[in-house]
Design a protein around this nucleic acid. Structure first.
Lengths: 186, 186
DNA sequence: GACTTTACAGACAAGTCTGTCTGTTTATGT
DNA sequence: ACATAAACAGACAGACTTGTCTGTAAAGTC
């Protein structure tokens, strides 16, 4: 703790603010003020606000990947892994005040986002899709069928996060979890 | 055509711009310029930008309800209705350049949206959820099971729209449609 | 013809935003 | 002790934002 350097402090502060209020809802001035740095220091480390957004999405992705790897590497059947994943999401959702998926929230802005931000979103989403396909492959022998089920889990998860955010309720996640388990145990 | 009054012209112009670039991505100045009205005329009809957003969401909801009613009232089995719904969504998605769901996109902004906007989002989402439960009830006798399947269709649909938008591809909608049909024909 | 409503044009206020700049202070390594 | 690098404070530019205001012009109505 104590005092990480300015760059890390900026990233951590921005991560909290971007997540809670969205990329377009937070300004540079607030970020540097809460991070306790000067504006000049900010622009020494990040050429623009967009580049900070990219760095934020990248750091979220790394944490997400770490969780997915421990989950996939651990014990349990495919449906148990999927259920654990959805329960994890539900926990995050409630803890964060129903803030949903950072990537989807960022992607919902204008079309004219920077190519770098769009790329981070695609990378994360494709990676998540791959994870679900891996889980599905554990339970389903036919490769084509496993891919379809994996993609379905991916869509279910995304819809669950989005609608839980819109309605500020957890039932979409529970519904998605039950559907996922049913698909994997069939 | 020709010349509707200023209020309608503003609403139609704002509808196009809000849908395409998001609520926060469009300013009053651009709306009135493209609508060909004066700023004073705008504030004579709408007390604020937020109230215009509410009016927009309300008008989208009305069109959506009209489509859902003709679909539900028409012929065809539950799974046929659901498939038609997803095909309709896919068409809209491609036509609009993958702009996803206006409600989810608006809801993805900050937490501190106006209560009126939040209310419109909730109203529409709950209404959509009810439609899917109605469709499910056509195919499934047990009421509790029909409600669960209806909610699952709702979540699938939302995830499909969101991820198709993020990835700019249509496969999430197709995956969701196939999953929906499978759920209803089981 | 006078009156009222509606819409026009556009300046203006007051605030936001990102990004640049100048100059000072602090810390570190040699 | 001294040089170099990093972070500091904060003014500033320029472009946006929403919303208010003054005043004018064109309609329809009594």
């Amino acid at each position: 703790m104590k005092k990480p350097n300015a760059k890390e402090r900026i990233l951590e502060t921005a991560a909290g603010l971007f997540f809670q209020r969205g990329y377009s809802g937070v300004g540079i001035n607030e970020i540097i003020e809460k991070a306790g740095t000067a504006k000049a220091s900010f622009y020494q480390h990040y050429p623009s606000k967009e580049s900070l957004c990219e760095a934020w999405l990248k750091s979220v992705h790394e944490k997400s990947e770490a969780f997915a790897e421990t989950l996939l590497g651990g014990p349990g059947s495919a449906s148990e892994k999927a259920a654990a994943y959805f329960e994890h999401l539900e926990r995050l959702l409630v803890e964060s005040g129903y803030r949903g998926c950072p990537y989807s929230n960022t992607g919902a802005l204008s079309v004219e986002k920077s190519p770098g931000i769009c790329r981070q979103i695609r990378l994360h989403k494709e990676s998540t899709r791959r994870r679900f396909r891996q889980i599905a492959a554990l339970a389903i022998a036919d490769p084509a069928e496993a891919e379809l089920v994996g993609d379905t889990l991916f869509v279910l998860q995304s819809g669950a996060m989005g609608e839980a955010q819109n309605l500020r309720e957890t039932w979409p996640v529970e519904v998605a979890r039950r559907a996922a388990v049913a698909l994997l145990e069939r």
